[in-house]
Design a protein around this nucleic acid. Structure first.
Lengths: 211, 211
DNA sequence: GAGCTTATTATGCAAGTGTATAACTAGCGA
DNA sequence: TCGCTAGTTATACACTTGCATAATAAGCTC
């Protein structure tokens, strides 16, 4: 009766593995499939180990949610922060990044939806949503303010706020459909729709990246 | 040892009860809480009865999804079909209905998100999503075509299609945030955002219902 | 009101659930 | 090389899960 040989991993490494395994479970089988045993198997460890890193399965879930949202924010923030571009180009680049892979992604959508469904049930999940939503909107507001200034247009902060809400909404909606049923749209159709609608909402001229 | 007395209900009535109980379970505790026993208890029947009306728990879930989407489509379709109004007013009424109670509703959102999360996992759920999405978009296309004609503007069907996609997206996004965290927005803020963005996207002038 | 159909309850079962606990061993510091 | 610590495995436990089955009674038909 010999036990399975194992390797002692660092705290950060093992936590990351467990979180990733948890996300795989949810993405492939829904929240119902995210059992401690399934997570452990995917992470290549025994079931009990989860409890050594997370007090409860729920805490692992919270960590997984935070990481998912952080990754999404990072992708689009990066696109909106590129150096050597005009403010308008940054905004357009941000919009484009939101509507292309790796943001448009079925796995990401499954995760996002599963977490959103829990946001109202579990207060901790609700708080995570709120934080990440506000961070995202602030990012849009910054891009917007820059683009307005560049265009020589004044805009009250209340207007910026409302426009950011609208932009966030249309991007959410387009991202959602593109990720869920991408085959229903032609190539770059969502991208064009995003640039057109953001342009129309703001009154700014946003050119497609490749024209 | 006497059994619980019961009443024999009609097929339609019992099915509706079971579907409603299933929706309550999901809305209040997530898909994880939607067990046959919990559903049965909420419906006031014994656990075994579910299997008498649905071959499997999954089929009950599918029926619940269909009903949820049908109810949402109906609410907004009704608002877009009101008699004695101009086409522009119908479109504005539709937009407004999408962004007010009973459409803006936390319970509805929880259900929607839980189902969306399953749409990619379970092919049957995916098909239900696709159907309801297309029906919704066709509704928008009809309203749009009417409003353009009324305004004396021509629009190719490809343009109508793209604009409907954009409108659907922005309404989805605003509805999402309003339902999920309504307290983050001021009164009628989402409504104004919706009318402004749909107006901007289409180039049509949409007045708020009360100005 | 008798008889019959079937909607409904009650119970059972095998598999799966999250967590607690104890035994084991990898890999560091001496 | 020899502990020692704590990361890791293995196992057990109480409970829940979806589904199957048999017993029961509601309420229609004649």
């Amino acid at each position: 009766m010999s036990r399975k040989p194992f390797r002692r991993a660092s705290d950060a490494e093992r936590r990351a593995d467990l979180i990733e395994a948890m996300l795989d479970c949810i993405a492939e089988g829904g929240i119902q499939n995210a059992t401690v045993r399934e997570v452990a198997e995917r992470a290549g460890v025994s079931g009990g180990l989860i409890r050594h890193y997370f007090e409860t399965k729920e805490q692992l879930l919270h960590a997984a949610y935070r990481q998912t949202m952080a990754a999404m924010t990072e992708i689009s923030a990066e696109a909106g922060m590129a150096d050597g571009k005009s403010a308008g180009e940054k905004l357009a680049g941000f919009v484009a990044a939101c509507l292309m892979p790796p943001m448009i992604d079925a796995r990401r959508l499954s995760l996002w939806a599963a977490f959103i469904a829990m946001a109202r049930i579990d207060p901790a999940m609700g708080a995570i949503h709120r934080e990440s939503y506000l961070e995202y909107r602030r990012l849009i507001e910054r891009l917007l303010a820059g683009a307005f200034q560049e265009a020589g247009r004044e805009a009250a902060s209340a207007d910026i706020r409302r426009l950011a809400i609208e932009i966030n909404a249309v991007l959410d909606g387009l991202w959602l459909e593109g990720s869920l049923a991408g085959d229903m749209f032609e190539d770059r159709e969502l991208l064009k729709a995003g640039l057109h609608s953001v342009g129309a909402i703001t009154g700014l001229r946003l050119d497609d990246i490749e024209g």
